[in-house]
Every structure is written in C-alpha cells, then in structure tokens.
Write a protein that binds this DNA or RNA. Structure first.
Length: 656
RNA sequence: GGGCGGCUAGCUCAGUUGGUUAGAGCGCUACGUUCACACCGUAGAGGUCACAGGUUCGAAUCCUGUGCCGCCCA
C-alpha cells in the first residue's frame, strides 16, 4: 500500500466484507496454510474410468449424473491424498537423511517391493542425502540404515482412498479369496449424488487398477432427503428422522415403503419432520427453534418431553418424543389395509380344498375374474418395468393403487355376494387366493416383514396351493425364496378392462346421486339406466353387482329407460341414470348444482366451437384429434340440453 | 464464476414421445360404524402448472430470458 501510495497510484482505501469459510464442526474461520502434501498423479488412472462410462460398460442412472462424473474425471487433476489426522491408513512412505543410495540398495537388496528416490534436499558434504522410501509391504523391516533413523511419514491417506478399496478389499483382496471370486464385480452401486466424484469415480479407478475389472456395471443415484426447509438432515443440526423411531411408531415396512415412494428421479425430496408427544401423541412441527432444545412442552397436553439434546438429570428423566414424518403414514395405512384384506381372505379360505391354481387361466368366466387376471398381468409387467429402470417409486405406487383401489375396493366387494352363493363360492375363493398370493410376491421387496408374515398364514390355510408360475412345486417355505410371479400377458384383456370400467362408472354415478341428495346409505335407491343396447348388454351380467355395491335396485336398463320428471340424474360412460327421489330430493340443491354445471358447460362448449371453427386447426391437427374434439362437442351439447330439461322440470316442481 | 436440479392443490410429490375437463397421498368439508379395515368407507371442495417472451392448429410438457431455492465444483 505504501508503495502504491508512493507511486501515486493509490486511489481509495475502504473496508470490505469478505466471505470467510467456517469449519462445520468447530465453527471457527478456516485459515489458509501452506504445507507439503502427497498427491497421486491422475492422468493414466482416470482414462479407464472415463472410457468405462463413455463406452457404456458402466451405466449411470439417471443419465444426467454421468456428466458430473465425466467432467470431473476429464480434468485429471492430481489427487491430494495426505491428511494430517490421527486415524486412517498411514501413508506407506518413509524418510531417511544422510545416507547414500548404495546404502539403501544394500539394505533392501532382493526386495522388489521397495523403491526410493531423493527427497529433493541438498546433498551432504560426503555425498549422503535425504530419501523417500516406499513399499507395498506393511513395513520396511528396518529402523535404521547406516545409523540413520528411517521414519514413516506421520500423514494418513484421505478417507476416500480407503473407501475406494471397498468393493474388493472387503472381499479379502489382495488374497484371491472365494468371496472375491463370487462377489466381485458386483452388479449395481446405489448411492447419493454428492459422492459421485469422491467415492464412485475412485472405486472405479481403484477397482480397475487393482483387479483389472470394473467393480460394478450400474450406478443408481437416489434422491437426497432434506428437511422441510430444504436443509440436509444431520445429527448435529438435530433436524433428522431416526429410522428406529419410525419403525417403533409406524412399522419397519412403513419405513421401507415410505423410502421407496420417495425414490423418484428427482434430485431432492423434502421430508417435514414432526415430534410426537409421548403423552398425547400430538404432532409438533419441528422448527429451527425447537429442534435444538433439550425439552419441548406439548402445546396440546402441556406435558414436557425430552429430545436428543437432553443433558440435565431432570430433562433426561422425561419421556422421549420421537421425531417422525407424516410421509411414512401412507405406508403404515397401507400395511394395515393389506393386513385387513388378508384377514378377509383367510376367513373365507377356511376348509377351502381346491388349492391347485396352476390351471387358473382356464377358469376366468365371470367378468370380474377376467378383469382381475388382466390387471394382475398388467401390474406385474408394470412393476417389472419400473424396477428394471430403477423407478422404485413408480413400482410402489402401482402396487399401492392396484391393491387398494382395485383389489380391495372393487374385487373384494364384488366377492362378498359370490362367497355366499355355493355355485360361485369356490371360484371366488380361488381367485382371492391367486390375487393375494401374487400381490404378496410383488410387494415383498418393498414390504418384506408383513408379506412374510401373511405368507406364513397363507401357508397354513392353503398349504397345497400351486400357482401357474410355481411349475408344479409347493409354495416356498419363505416368501423370500418364492418364485417371482409371471402372469402371462395373454391374460391382459383391454376390452374386459373397458367393460369393467363402465361398470365402476355406473356404480360411482349412483353413489354420487346418493351423496348429493344426502340419502342415507341404508335407503335403497331405484335406478333407471338409459344406455345404448351394447352397453346395456354389457352391464346385464353385472346387475347384481351394481345393486350390491351401490345399495340400489335397478329398474329398466336399456335405450328406453326414462326417469320421472325432475328425477335426479347423473351421466356415466355414455349412460344416463335416473333416480326418482320424489320425497327425498333437495330441489334447491339440485337446481344450484345443475346451474353450476350449466355455466361450466356453456364455457367449455364455446371454447370447443372456437377451436373447431379455426380453419388451421382442422387443416393441421391430426384427423383423430379433430374427430375427438367433435365427439366431445356433441357429447357436451347433449348434456347441456338434458341439463336444461331437468332444470325446467325441477323449477316447475319447486314449491313457491 | 462453471455445472446440475427444482418451482404443478394448504403440505409432500407424480405427470411417458406436445393433444379430453392436469393426478395421487396427507390435510380440509359433508355423510356414514352394512359382520376385512375409522390406520376405514362414500362423495365433495381445492390448481392462471414461478414469471415474461417465443415456436405450434394446440404448451405444465419444446426454445429463450428473468426471478427465487438447493446441491456439486472452482
């Protein structure tokens, strides 16, 4: 500064704030310090690791992470491996001063694993110098040479150096063990994105260098879980979830299922954390303030509980409030759902003899059986596809939706009446067994404990069951070694699924009317369904099912069905449903609803007309898209007219 | 400074190659304990898809820019 001033070059002196890095652990500023360190030259080592990914021999999923791997390795920056710590692998380098090379050669004569080179210090007067000595053996075996002490470097290797050895050293390398022969290389490495360069790249480098073989063929990078504020979870911040707490409160399968549904292709997932009051089970949002307190008072029951920070004897004596997340509750609820569905199946399976389901494919006569078989085949294919592509969340979602919404809500309900009829009872039971067994196998990787438990119960009730994919063998003693299900794709039947969809839509429409009009569940509704002949034929065999699932009795189902003037109406799957509610109907509510519908329809019809009137749309959009739009317009206009008729009828009926 | 990702319902997230009225779980509202399940059932409300341009007959989706959030590297 003085020089600048003297030279007349100093313009201004001012105070500036400088970003100063702080140590995460000690919270003290990090000061630069120049020191000699050991480096590993990377140019030759990096090349095979780069080639492995470029050529596709090593696949990184999701693909975008290959970029950070390649970018980083391409720089081929030398790796500083020495650390001034008290733990770790000591660097296999020794120092000696004041000796000539001849003395080293004599001391290590015959040892090919020892190498040395000058350490760069100046020579002594008598020709002796400083040397680095290196060996791949554990020790040098000598303490002095020519009276000079030989001392091992006090530095240890970077933790990632040791970690890079993990795939092969854990299997006994450098010995050629049976474990190494069997388990090396592995198939897939699952890890977090922040250590792709630190760990994954180093394992590849080290694995190839030491064994000549890539340590794994695929790398799956999973998302990282952050708290509700987007911060990385850590014990020292106190913002984490303890898996043991989750297991204790919600179950091990809830934890695993929850983790699986979080495993999407995204980079981060957020997990809001809540304390659970041990006294009243109220949930208390974890905040930046309360997460570092030794005790928290429950705002609901006012009783205090301790956290991981409890220190004093009084705090330590308090009951502990576990840290949980609502994101595991769906898994807990799902476990419960599956357990109860199982109870229902087992209850109905007692004294069931026909356990051989190997020829199940020949017996799908009822619509719902064809549908269930079709769905089993589709869902299995979907789960296979998802797991092959590391889309674990999609697999979990598919199984959750199928089990809950289709197997439990639809199929089990339909079975209830069939189970009471001796003519259909055994077929329904066989189908329940087939479906539950298949669901268990598909779910097992995601919910291992519950599925095993149920598997054992199933084994007691139906020990002789044979599924088509069991190849004539009895069910395995444990689901862990049971065959993966293989429902044939020939079971997939799109027309049946469509048909079944129509059925469900009709049931839904009746339920909607009931709910809209506040009709108690026990009151039977009488429903007329105006449907095209084809749809009516299709619904005919499901008549009883519609009645039982919707709590209704069906009148006319066909093109000529009509409702009394002012009947409550609903549309579904190309049908119009009429429920005459003369004594029950809330006319005002119905009119209000229809008016709202009407406004919405008018707006949508207007938009459609503009679209279809646009010449360029007709000219440039694909024919099927234009056709679809036309059909929708017709359908909407039809609904508009019907709505207006009903409105007029209701208005005439409304008292006053 | 470079790179990667995110911004969709109150919350946490899905949304395949652009094409019905954008979905799920939790939460919320109403009704309901009919013998698998209230950790449940039925129905419902709730979204200008961060913002601004552009491409296109058509954009949550493709392109450009901006803002905010996060991570890796320097």
């Amino acid at each position: 500064m003085a020089d600048l001033e003297a030279a007349g070059q100093l313009v201004l002196v001012e105070d500036r704030l400088i970003e100063l890095a702080h140590s995460d652990r000690s919270k003290t500023p990090i000061e630069p310090y120049l020191a000699d360190q050991w480096f590993i030259r990377m140019d030759e080592l990096a090349e095979p690791a780069l080639e492995a990914v470029r050529s596709g021999k090593l696949k990184i999923v999701p693909e975008r992470y290959a970029k950070s791997y390649l970018d980083w390795l391409s720089e081929k920056r030398d790796w500083p491996v020495s650390r001034q710590l008290w733990w770790g692998h000591r660097i296999p380098i020794w120092h000696i001063s004041g000796v000539r090379e001849a003395a080293l050669a004599a001391a290590f004569a015959g040892r090919t694993s020892v190498a040395w080179q000058p350490d760069g210090t100046a020579r002594d007067d008598d020709g002796g110098g400083g040397w680095f000595v290196c060996t791949s053996d554990e020790t040098l075996g000598v303490d002095t040479i020519d009276g000079q002490p030989i001392v091992q470097d006090s530095d240890v290797l970077d933790t990632w150096f040791s970690s890079a050895l993990w795939p092969h050293s854990t299997l006994g390398w450098p010995e050629q063990t049976a474990e190494l022969a069997t388990f090396y290389p592995g198939s897939a490495l699952l890890t977090s994105r922040d250590i792709i360069t630190l760990w994954v790249a180093r394992m590849v480098i080290m694995g190839v260098f030491d064994t000549g073989v890539l340590p794994f063929r695929e790398v799956y990078i999973h998302p990282k879980i952050l708290d509700r504020y987007g911060e990385t979870m850590s014990k020292s911040k106190g913002n984490g979830v303890d898996p043991l707490d989750v297991i204790e409160a919600l179950g091990a399968d809830a934890l695993r299922f929850g983790m699986t549904t979080l495993a999407t292709e995204t980079q981060d997932v957020r997990m809001p954390v809540e304390f659970q009051c041990p006294a009243c089970e109220a949930r208390i949002e974890q905040t930046v303030q309360n997460r570092i307190q030794p005790r928290i008072e429950c705002p609901k029951c006012k009783k205090p509980f301790k956290t991981q920070w409890a220190q004093t004897d009084t705090d330590l004596a308090l009951p502990r409030g576990p840290a949980l997340s609502e994101r595991f509750e769906a898994g807990r609820n799902f476990s419960n759902k599956l357990w109860n569905a199982t109870r229902f199946v087992l209850m109905n399976l007692e004294d069931f003899q026909a356990g051989d389901l190997a020829g199940a494919g020949n017996r799908f006569e009822a619509l719902e059986d064809r549908w269930l078989a079709s769905r089993l085949a589709s869902v299995t294919a979907e789960v296979n596809r998802c797991t092959d592509e590391y889309r674990f969340a999609d697999a979990a979602r598919a199984l959750y939706a199928f089990t809950w919404d289709e197997f439990c809500s639809a199929y089990l309900e339909l079975c209830k009446s069939r189970l009471g009829d001796p003519a259909t009872r055994d077929q329904a039971r066989a189908m329940l067994l087939l479906a539950l067994d298949t669901i268990l196998r598909l779910l097992h990787p995601i919910m291992p404990f519950l599925t095993e438990e149920i598997w054992q119960h199933l084994g007691e009730v139906a020990p002789n069951r044979r599924l088509p994919w069991d190849r004539g063998e009895a069910p395995a003693a444990s689901i862990m070694v049971a065959r993966w299900p293989e429902p044939p794709l020939a079971w997939v039947d799109r027309r049946t699924e469509e048909q079944f969809g129509t059925f469900l839509a009709v049931v839904g429409a009746i339920r909607e009317i009931r709910s809209r009009q506040n009709v108690p569940p026990k009151t039977k509704l009488t429903v007329q369904i105006r449907a095209p002949l084809s749809t009516a034929e299709l619904l005919a065999p499901m008549r009883g099912s519609i009645e039982s699932m919707a709590g209704a009795s069906l009148g006319v189902v066909g093109p000529d069905a009509t409702g009394a003037p002012g009947a409550a109406t609903a549309a579904a799957a190309g049908c119009d449903l009429f429920v005459d509610l003369a004594d029950l109907i809330d006319v005002g509510a119905e009119i209000a609803r229809l008016k709202k519908d009407h406004e919405k329809l008018v707006a949508m019809i207007a938009a459609k007309r503009v679209k279809l009137g646009d010449e360029t749309f007709a000219a440039r959009a694909p024919a099927n898209v234009v056709e679809k739009e036309r059909e929708q317009l017709v359908e909407m206009e039809d609904r508009l007219v019907k709505g207006m008729t009903t409105l007029a009828e209701l208005a005439a009926r409304k008292p006053g």
